[in-house]
Design a protein around this nucleic acid. Sequence first.
DNA 1: TGATTATATTTAAATATATTCATATGTCAA
DNA 2: TTGACATATGAATATATTTAAATATAATCA
Lengths: 111, 111
Amino acid sequence: MKPNIQEFQAAVLNALAHPMRLKILEKLRAGPCCVCKIIPYVKGEQSNVSHHLQILRRANIVRSEKRGQEVWYEVVDPVIFELLDKVRLCVIHNLTRSHRLLTTLNIKEMK
Amino acid sequence: MKPNIQEFQAAVLNALAHPMRLKILEKLRAGPCCVCKIIPYVKGEQSNVSHHLQILRRANIVRSEKRGQEVWYEVVDPVIFELLDKVRLCVIHNLTRSHRLLTTLNIKEMK
DNA sequence: TGATTATATTTAAATATATTCATATGTCAA
DNA sequence: TTGACATATGAATATATTTAAATATAATCA
């Protein structure tokens, strides 16, 4: 079976497509970071965070390095952040369209 | 439960994260298109393609319009294509890193 | 060495997703 | 109005993902 680029793209997108993993990457935007800082940031259980880090690692989105007792993670390719910015833009456009639709319909009951 | 942007982002990414849906969007990059053209392009079964179109529709990534007997689809927000370009870039960077690693290790057995 | 800390892995249950098949809906043309 | 075509929907099944709990590993410290 000949591989196609869409499969690779889908693999990257799948690895990104989870709220906790997005939150982890948001934390890593500021630079490399130790798991012990990531856990409280994403407010997740240790084993769950570790599992999600593994998913990001397997997709080559992040890499890890042992520093003494700690493990530090960093994003491999900063293009990931540009990608996430585009996703955010899509979400904002979407919500903006909904909002405009609502005002166009002249519905006044918004809180 | 207070919603957070990551959930919305994850929803968009999830909707994109499938080879067939990426292929559909690639077809729609050229402009609005009828389902009857999409099906042969992605080489999928009619009902399966229809299901995937539904997923893209529900995520507000595409919208459909009936034209007589046909249904035409188009991408709602062109930012989606910029997003997909970033994903492609990630994949290419990834493969390039692998390739460079291989040559750095001076492994000659590549076909 | 033994205890402690940081992190990863394994497992099982719950949930979500993809695919297929059968059928339904709507439109056009004879 | 019947039949053919284009597309959507629903149910059933197979498969993958998420989560939490338990356990394992590895580094550090007393």
